[in-house]
Design a protein around this nucleic acid. Sequence first.
DNA 1: TGTTAGATTGTAACTATTACATTATAGTTA
DNA 2: TAACTATAATGTAATAGTTACAATCTAACA
Lengths: 140, 140
Amino acid sequence: MQKYVKELKYHKLKITPQRLDILKFLDNNRVHPSADEIYQAIKIDSPALSKTTVYNNIDVMVKNNIIKSFRFMDSNELRFDYKTTEHYHFICRECKSIYDIDISLPYFEKFKNYKHKVEEFYGDYKGVCENCLKNNSKNK
Amino acid sequence: MQKYVKELKYHKLKITPQRLDILKFLDNNRVHPSADEIYQAIKIDSPALSKTTVYNNIDVMVKNNIIKSFRFMDSNELRFDYKTTEHYHFICRECKSIYDIDISLPYFEKFKNYKHKVEEFYGDYKGVCENCLKNNSKNK
DNA sequence: TGTTAGATTGTAACTATTACATTATAGTTA
DNA sequence: TAACTATAATGTAATAGTTACAATCTAACA
């Protein structure tokens, strides 16, 4: 728990039980949860939690770069990750599972002398996952 | 106009003035418009148009691969393109302009022997565009 | 020309998110 | 330790984008 306190203090944010709960949840559940999933999970042990608090804190933590927010291309809800190394997502069109792809790709090198200054990249890959390939030969 | 009729017929979709208007608009305005932008534009000449019709038709045309739908990572609205070659988007964090990036990147080659079967890719690049770099030296 | 499956329309519902006002509390100071 | 104050938490209401639904209409075919 001390590491979350340290993290918040570093960014001059007040230490509140709600913030610690959210950080702890994101750190222990690296499944790109949505705001509602975070809310529902924490509410079990802290029923007084308000969804607005989840949104407020997510917001302030994203702005302070403590957590990352992103969105899958075909989804209408934002998703969140405790600080991660750069990675991409693979979404299976059969079972909808989300896998992290950790293959490092030379995106930025390509843009060394490009007319625009490229700073960030977001990407999703889509297809059929390992398991669905195994279970359903028509996908091969 | 005949090419839109042909396109719809090929997919066994009924030819309606609304569908032709939407296709024509998307073909002539390759600026990734949102559903509302499509609706507002066509309404000028066809005031009876319903927004539900825009959504319905967008939906059926996406499903038939006549148009493409996608979403910018930090936006909550879907955007649409008349059939395009594969390309990526660059969004300027200063002026919010959207540029198409037509540099072809060897994404799929990397995944030839990957455990998952990669079929589609969506990506956004973000940074500072050519013009904003020129106009504001602090971005360099 | 009549029939009918499918399309269009308008309204209402829904989901994710944000705005806002009130109450509470973390962290500082006396 | 108590009091103070800036910030945070809460609940409600509002908003934006989209979808569901029922009634009406029309394109395409016999």
